[in-house]
Structures are given as structure tokens and as C-alpha cells.
Amino acid sequence: MLVIKISNPNDPSAYSIIEELSQNLYERFGSDGKNSFTDWENNNPKYLFVIAEWNTEIVGCGAIRPLSEKTGEVKRMFAKYPRKSIGQSILSFLETKAKELNYEELVLETRAKNEEACSFYLNSNYIKTPNYGKYADRLDAVCFQKNL
């Protein structure tokens, strides 16, 4: 049974899935994505990090960090096993918690080459938007947004 749990990216139990995500990104795209999630603030309640457990195995993760009081950014989404509804379960959990944290919208960036992720977000009712923030001038990035 899949269970989504609130965790901390600095927790030793989360380390292996974060490293697996980083290695996966590096092998596929030449960058591990770690530098885009370095400002984790454990004491800020608007930050949220979750892990997905299947039996006793950690099989996924995801996070939200605040960009503003009403806008959260989805980060570090990863499912170890594709097409098992792990990613959808994580994203649904994050969206529910985002509403509880009074976010009005979620935004995210993924690599344009990551066709699986782009399809996943479009199928999850996110819409493609102009690139924002540090992604504004990056041709290799694609951004999405969803009103909650």
C-alpha cells in the first residue's frame, strides 16, 4: 500500500530517494537539480516535503516551497517506479496540503526534454505558462501553473 508522509529533505530516511532523483536527472539531462532546492527552511510552515512509501520502501518524493504568500513552487517530484500512480499520489497530496497552507496557485519548472513530466503535468490539469523567475530566459525549461 502506498502512503504519502510529510518528511524533511534533511532526514536520513529521505536521503536515498533524493540521491536517486538527483542521479536520475544527471544521467538523463546532465544536471542533478540539487541547486534548485537548497533553501529548504525547516521552520517555515509554507515549505513542505513529502516521501512516498510502498510497504517499507521509499519510492518517491515531492516538495513545495513558497514563492510568495499565495504561490507555491512544486519541486523535487520523483517516482522510482513509473506508471504506478506514485507521482500522481504525491502531487495530489501536495495540492491538498497547498490548499491547507492557503496557496492559491502552484507553479513548477521542468526540462523541455522531459516529455514524460510535461505530459504528466498537462494530464494533472496544469497549464503551460511563460517561464518565470530564473527560468525566464532558459530555452531548456518549460513552466506550468495550476490554480487551486
Rank of each mutant, 00 (worst) to 15 (best):
residue 74 V to D: 02
residue 29 F to K: 04
residue 91 L to A: 02
residue 122 L to R: 08
residue 113 K to D: 15
residue 88 Q to R: 12
residue 65 R to P: 02
residue 140 D to F: 06
residue 93 F to G: 06
residue 51 I to M: 13
residue 99 K to P: 04
residue 96 T to V: 14
residue 19 E to W: 07
residue 139 L to A: 11
residue 67 L to G: 00
residue 22 S to L: 10
residue 90 I to S: 01
residue 35 N to P: 05
residue 111 R to E: 02
residue 18 I to W: 05
residue 18 I to K: 07
residue 58 I to H: 03
residue 58 I to K: 00
residue 118 C to N: 08
residue 42 N to K: 11
residue 12 P to C: 04
residue 71 T to Y: 05
residue 131 N to A: 07
residue 74 V to E: 01
residue 24 N to W: 14
residue 43 N to I: 13
residue 58 I to V: 14
residue 120 F to P: 02
residue 68 S to W: 09
residue 96 T to G: 01
residue 120 F to T: 07
residue 41 E to D: 15
residue 144 F to G: 00
residue 55 N to G: 15
residue 61 C to E: 01
residue 50 V to W: 00
residue 13 S to A: 14
residue 53 E to I: 08
residue 34 K to V: 10
residue 64 I to E: 06
residue 31 S to H: 08
residue 36 S to R: 13
residue 135 Y to K: 09
residue 3 V to T: 15
residue 35 N to M: 07
residue 124 S to Y: 12
residue 147 N to S: 13
residue 34 K to N: 13
residue 60 G to T: 06
residue 126 Y to M: 03
residue 18 I to H: 02
residue 135 Y to H: 13
residue 104 E to A: 10
residue 99 K to E: 10
residue 48 L to I: 05
residue 140 D to R: 09
residue 96 T to A: 15
residue 13 S to N: 10
residue 30 G to E: 10
residue 118 C to M: 07
residue 31 S to M: 05
residue 139 L to C: 13
residue 128 K to W: 05
residue 24 N to Y: 10
residue 7 S to W: 00
residue 111 R to K: 12
residue 36 S to G: 12
residue 23 Q to L: 15
residue 144 F to Y: 02
residue 36 S to I: 15
residue 68 S to A: 14
residue 95 E to K: 09
residue 123 N to T: 13
residue 46 K to G: 10
residue 105 E to P: 01
residue 3 V to D: 15
residue 95 E to Y: 07
residue 58 I to C: 08
residue 102 N to W: 04
residue 31 S to N: 15
residue 82 P to K: 10
residue 7 S to R: 02
residue 108 L to D: 01
residue 121 Y to G: 00
residue 133 G to P: 05
residue 131 N to M: 03
residue 101 L to P: 02
residue 115 E to W: 03
residue 77 M to F: 06
residue 15 Y to R: 15
residue 127 I to K: 12
residue 2 L to M: 06
residue 122 L to F: 12
residue 135 Y to M: 14
residue 78 F to I: 12
residue 139 L to S: 13
residue 33 G to E: 00
residue 118 C to H: 04
residue 144 F to R: 01
residue 47 Y to M: 04
residue 109 E to N: 08
residue 147 N to P: 01
residue 11 D to W: 09
residue 146 K to I: 11
residue 147 N to Q: 12
residue 73 E to Q: 14
residue 34 K to H: 11
residue 69 E to R: 04
residue 89 S to R: 04
residue 132 Y to I: 15
residue 108 L to T: 06
residue 75 K to P: 08
residue 138 R to L: 06
residue 80 K to V: 12
residue 50 V to T: 13
residue 102 N to F: 13
residue 12 P to M: 08
residue 114 N to K: 01
residue 96 T to H: 12
residue 121 Y to I: 03
residue 115 E to G: 08
